[in-house]
């Protein structure tokens, strides 16, 4: 996954006060490897394994090294660095670019950015930002909630009662992540994280009421910005002909962005308190994550007891 320098500047403006010093017209350059690199060795003339596809960060040490060189040498070294077709250069601690850097930027059409942050902190945060910007995303039809530390995504046909169930869960003190449309992202650890679209965040649509603003009605604790996904609950209209898992021994999963997420299918019949069932499903998932599988444990207990009886 790659992004343009322009996108990186746009997204980095708020968190790192990132701004363009020179080369505005070259912001279309592409960062082919979403990571950052301190080109110390390259400046010293060693180019083996030089990560030229990444953003090049010139910090205190690189700057001090460049200053220790004669202007001629400095120009040559920078020239060799820029010849590798780097996407952009970031100067930390709000340092002004030297005349040699400015010349290279123009000659090689590479933008120069700057941030007031110190290098280490900038690299840490910018790495996270880049990972998020390039992470695989999917927009998923479903309502997501945080239920006692468990991220639950409810899916099902329109009108099955996802939003109403979410409302009941919010009233029980749980938090809404997104209503009806959830953006799912795979983070660098492989976990799936869900959040709402920026435009509709904090809002829900309830049939008969229309659009409501959730934190105004239920308080700020009723909302959560993002949450890792632990469980997908599929709500289905109860079908007497269909067989539902009655033991919980046959755990199903659903593949989302290449990750296997536990899936539960819950039949919705008139009069069934779905919010309560979903709440218990989340608690049961939490128990499983702690290493207790109630269905499996009861089954093992049974097998042992039946074996004892048989031998008697």
């Amino acid at each position: 996954m790659s992004i343009t320098v322009e996108k990186f500047v746009e997204e980095g403006r708020d968190p790192f006060s990132l701004e363009v010093v020179a080369g505005h017209e070259y912001l279309g350059r592409i960062i082919k490897e979403a990571a950052l690199n301190r080109p110390g060795l390259a400046l010293a003339g060693f180019f083996q394994h030089f990560a030229h596809l990444r953003v090049q960060v010139l910090g205190l040490a690189e700057n001090a090294y460049l200053k220790s060189l004669t202007p001629d040498e400095r120009g040559q070294r920078l020239h060799r660095l820029y010849q590798k077709k780097i996407p952009c250069v970031v100067l930390t601690r709000n340092r002004q670019p030297s005349s040699e850097i400015l010349e290279c930027a123009e000659a090689f059409k590479v933008p120069i950015l700057k941030t007031p942050m110190i290098t280490n902190r900038f690299i840490n945060l910018a790495t996270l930002l880049m990972e998020n910007l390039t992470a695989p995303l999917v927009r998923y039809q479903g309502t997501m909630l945080e239920i006692m530390g468990i991220g639950v995504l409810m899916e099902g046909q329109a009108g099955i009662g996802k939003s109403e169930t979410a409302l009941a869960l919010i009233e029980r003190g749980h938090s809404l992540v997104s209503d009806d449309l959830t953006v799912l992202r795979k983070d660098s650890t492989g976990a799936i994280v869900g959040y709402a679209d920026d435009m509709t965040r904090y809002h829900m649509e309830i049939r008969g009421l229309g659009i409501i603003h959730v934190p105004s009605l239920f308080g700020v604790a009723s909302m959560r910005r993002e949450m890792h996904l632990d469980l997908v609950v599929r709500l289905e209209r109860f079908d007497p002909k269909k067989e539902y898992d009655r033991t919980g021994l046959n755990s199903e999963t659903i593949s989302i962005l290449g990750a296997d997420v536990p899936l539960l299918t819950i039949p919705v019949a008139a009069g069934r308190d779905i919010a309560h069932v979903v709440e218990v499903a989340a608690l049961n998932q939490k128990l499983k994550q702690l290493g207790h599988d109630a269905a499996k444990e009861l089954d093992e207990k049974l097998v042992r007891a039946l074996e004892r009886k048989r031998r008697m």
Partner: peptide, 10 residues
């Protein structure tokens, strides 16, 4: 062999 445990019961 294992008698009527959860899976056969289901």
């Amino acid at each position: 062999k294992h008698g009527m445990h959860a899976r056969p019961a289901a």
